[in-house]
């Protein structure tokens, strides 16, 4: 309680006059991102689905990056991590980020390995 609110987002590019105004500004930003995601999901531009980067379609890269951007603004402005001490912020965010990154790396590699076994090994599952 009684924290001062930091009213700038986008690294100081946009500064709001009050906390209430900031909330509406962030809502607008999040809504725009969601609208972009849904539009891309419905249109599925061929440029983005045909090309891939690091074995993933560009479209999926865009979805995941936009999701992380949304998550950032929800955590930083709605859950007001921006106003907390950096120590609290780091202990919550980095613990989660490291463990989740590790878990996804291990399990996705393993899933891909099993896919290869089903494809090239002597396992028949499509019958």
């Amino acid at each position: 309680m009684g924290h001062e609110h930091k009213l700038s987002i986008f690294r100081g590019l946009v500064t709001f006059k009050s906390n209430t105004q900031k909330i509406w500004g962030v809502l607008l930003f999040l809504s725009i991102i969601t609208a972009i995601e849904v539009a891309l999901g419905i249109i599925k531009p061929a440029v983005l689905t045909d090309n891939s980067f690091l074995a993933m379609k560009l479209l999926n890269w865009i979805f995941i990056i936009l999701t992380l951007v949304k998550a950032y603004y929800i955590a930083w402005d709605f859950m007001h991590l921006r106003d907390e001490k950096a120590g609290l912020r780091r202990s919550v965010v980095w613990t989660g980020v490291f463990l989740i990154a590790y878990l996804s790396f291990i399990l996705l590699v393993e899933g891909n390995y099993i896919y290869d076994i089903y494809k090239d090994g002597f396992v028949k599952w499509e019958f």
């Binding site: 989740i100 399990l107 996705l108 899933g111 891909n112 099993i114 896919y115």
Partner: peptide, 12 residues
């Protein structure tokens, strides 16, 4: 991530 695992397993 378990969802991702199963999806990668049956990606095709």
């Amino acid at each position: 991530v378990a969802y991702g695992f199963s999806r990668f397993k049956f990606i095709e």
